[in-house]
């Protein structure tokens, strides 16, 4: 094996740390997807585009001289309302329908968002410079940008905050009740329509936070959304719906996989390897289940 990563052991540490920090961010996006999939039975292909839109909010704050880290607070607030508007315009019409209809509808929203962002913000790859500097570890042989540590920390804070909110608050309990049985929740006086709108809004807000963090840590581009959707879908199907520790673990696993794929296959195959991994996971699970005469539900 003449790959650089196997010749320099420190690169392995670098890849693992980078991957873990990146994976926490993926897990946050996947958490939003799992939430709305579980509550509304909708797979949102526009998930990644909501992330990128959230990223542009932080980027524009940066352009106007506000530190982009404030985007972590501003972006979810704006994105919450964007989410509610999308729900009112499109999603409420597909919520009780077949899952494939929701995929088609959100695929349409995704393409629309991509084109609108390309039209409004231009096709340049941009980033919001946080100026956080870097941390050097192990005799300067491992470099970690502080922005990555910051984004992982904020992701964890938001994820824990949401878990507590879902457990303790009235709306959180209503969301969980609707997820368990929408009809029973309705009979007991829960306004499921509002719950759905709030769920979609919360998901969009999570995407907003993740987007702001991505614009600080990495780069954003109007067409970069789909890989984030695929990653979060993959994380959710590997972890299983409603399994939060699983989402965090598989998110970090995916992050590490990506970093290694980057070093071994080359950056040009990084995204391709993520998509292929999705196909491989689905095929593996299909063959595993077909032995028991079952299929993926």
């Amino acid at each position: 094996m003449d790959f650089l990563i196997f010749q320099v052991p420190m690169l392995t540490v670098q890849a693992v740390l980078d991957g873990l920090l990146l994976g926490i961010l993926f897990a946050l996006i996947a958490y939003g997807m799992a939430l709305q999939w579980g509550v509304m039975n909708i797979i949102n292909i526009a998930q990644g585009d909501l992330v990128i839109l959230g990223g542009y909010i932080a980027y524009f704050m940066y352009l106007y001289g506000i530190h982009p880290a404030w985007g972590v607070i501003v972006s979810p607030i704006i994105m919450y309302f964007v989410g509610v508007i999308i729900y009112k315009l499109v999603i409420n019409k597909v919520v009780d329908r077949d899952l494939f209809i929701s995929i088609l509808a959100t695929f349409g929203i995704s393409i629309l968002f991509m084109q609108l962002m390309n039209f409004a913000f231009g096709a340049d790859v941009v980033l919001a410079n946080s100026g956080y500097g870097t941390t050097m570890l192990f005799d300067n042989s491992v470099t970690l940008p502080n922005s990555k540590i910051f984004s992982a920390f904020i992701s964890i804070v938001f994820a824990i905050g949401l878990v507590i909110y879902m457990k303790k608050s009235k709306l959180g309990r209503a969301i969980r009740a609707t997820a368990q049985n929408a009809r029973a929740a309705k009979i007991l006086g829960v306004d499921t329509e509002k719950v759905y709108a709030a769920t979609f809004g919360i998901n969009a807000a999570l995407c907003g936070v993740a987007g702001a963090l991505i614009s600080i840590t990495f780069t954003i581009h109007p067409y970069m959304g789909l890989p984030y959707t695929i990653r979060s879908f993959m994380i959710v199907i590997v972890a299983g719906l409603g399994n939060l520790p699983g989402v965090a673990m598989s998110g970090m696993g995916l992050g590490v996989f990506e970093e290694f794929a980057d070093y071994i296959l080359g950056t040009e195959f990084r995204i391709g390897s993520v998509f292929l991994l999705l196909v491989l996971i689905l095929v593996y699970r299909r063959f595993k289940l077909s032995k028991k005469r079952e299929y993926l539900k």
């Binding site: 797979i43 292909i45 077949d98 899952l99 494939f100 995929i103 789909l226 890989p227 695929i230 879908f233 199907i237 195959f269 995204i271 391709g272 998509f275 292929l276 999705l278 196909v279 689905l282 095929v283 299909r286 063959f287 077909s290 299929y295 993926l296 539900k297």
Partner: peptide, 24 residues
């Protein structure tokens, strides 16, 4: 390999294949 997948899993799997092909 993939025709054994049903409904939305098949849809997302083929979406993954299509974009993977482009990326690769």
């Amino acid at each position: 390999s993939i025709l054994g997948l049903r409904g939305h899993y098949f849809a997302i799997c083929t979406l993954g294949l299509g974009v993977a092909a482009g990326e690769i």
